[in-house]
Design a protein around this nucleic acid. Structure first.
Lengths: 221, 221
DNA sequence: GATCTCTGTCTATCAGTCATAGATAATCTA
DNA sequence: TAGATTATCTATGACTGATAGACAGAGATC
């Protein structure tokens, strides 16, 4: 009835819960874990399918039973990484004050990025030629954006320009933290300040709507 | 005298102005230009030395007369790209108002990044495994940092925290512009606002030195 | 003029990459 | 037990960057 196409004999009674056996999925997850390890060692584009196969006691072509291509492996890693980020933000008990909560999410994200440089590369930089995350892999990323939007609304950051600016600042904090102090907190600690300034500025400009911003001092050319 | 080592006969009267002939250097520059083209087509890590050699009517091994390795080619491209950025900022007539000038440099940088995605990748993201720019290649980058520091000082942004925050915001603007609106100006247009807010905040906090920032409302845990 | 050296380029080859084809063993289903 | 499916293998193909060694031509030196 409401099944997928079952072109052939229609005999198969199995519900194909995930189209693959439990064992298959478990091994697939293990391969992804090892791929992260190799990526940390050899770089994201430096993963060798031979090394990866060896690490799970397989020969290289056998990996194609789990992934259609190397790009498909990256896709699985992308989804895995996005879900890690989402899980982390959802696991934490939300703080009562909206501004505190917004700061906390920003700190989560910046810390998350700087913990694992190659994960940050795969998730937030377009570093692999021809790689574009599939819709399925983007799903946790979409949920994270929803979560973030909600926190922004709670602190009255709703104007599109405000949101663009906010996204730029957060990605910039993460980028600098990863590039210049990986594993540290030099830019993590700026999260509170940046959020406070941004919220204050947004409040101020919504109070005097569309008026010329007070600080502008244009020089007549 | 102040020469490099000249192990053998010491007869050579030529000053070896750059250790290579003018013709050699010109061809090297042409190879770098073509490498940028290939990178835009196939991705930064997708450059094939065979394709690159073909594009300048050479066979693949002949490239090794111009670059020691593929990483050395990336190093040359890095230096080339950094010099492009420096040249652009220095070519522009400086604006009289320090704040206007600071905004202009930020806009230059964000526009520069979004003009060429792979150039931005090579210059500002660590995307190629094992690639680390040489000291020589970093020289124009160092000069750009000097230039930027000077502009920051002129707008009284000197505190290390201010500078960290500024660098994060600028790189974030560039990143979002490249990722979400390449070639456009959606984040370029935020440069003025962000600079003004940042300068105002820095002035405010230097007026009330070391006092607890007014907007902080910490929740007791 | 004969010789030497250096430069630029070539062909041939190597070890490594991802990917595909086709065979075989192991497991599950009827 | 017979048949189908799954998991894996070996062998191979078309690429990749890198190295070895030969060779032709230009200038300098004797």
């Amino acid at each position: 009835m409401t099944d997928r196409q079952r072109s052939t004999t229609e005999k198969n009674p199995i519900a194909t819960p995930d189209r693959r056996s439990r064992r298959h999925l478990a091994k697939r997850a293990r391969i992804i874990d090892n791929a992260w390890s190799l990526a940390r060692r050899d770089g994201l584009t430096g993963i060798s399918l031979r090394d990866l196969a060896d690490s799970v006691d397989l020969r290289q072509p056998s990996l194609y039973a789990y992934f259609e291509s190397k790009l498909d492996l990256y896709d699985a890693m992308f989804e895995d990484g996005q879900r890690q980020l989402l899980d982390r933000c959802q696991a934490r008990e939300p703080l009562p004050d909206p501004l505190d909560e917004l700061v906390a999410v920003v700190e989560d994200l910046v810390r998350f990025s700087s913990e694992d440089v190659v994960r940050h590369q795969l998730l937030f930089q377009r570093t692999i030629p021809d790689f574009e995350p599939s819709a399925a892999a983007m799903e946790p990323a979409r949920q994270f954006v929803d979560l973030m939007s909600e926190r922004l609304r709670a602190s009255r950051l709703e104007d599109p320009g405000d949101v663009d600016l906010f996204s730029a600042i957060v990605s910039g904090l993460a980028h600098q933290q990863v590039a210049n102090d990986p594993g540290g907190d030099r830019w993590v600690l700026l999260a509170r300040r940046v959020v406070e300034v941004l919220v204050a500025d947004a409040d101020q400009r919504s109070a005097r709507p569309t008026k010329k911003p007070t600080t502008t001092r244009r020089v007549t050319k």
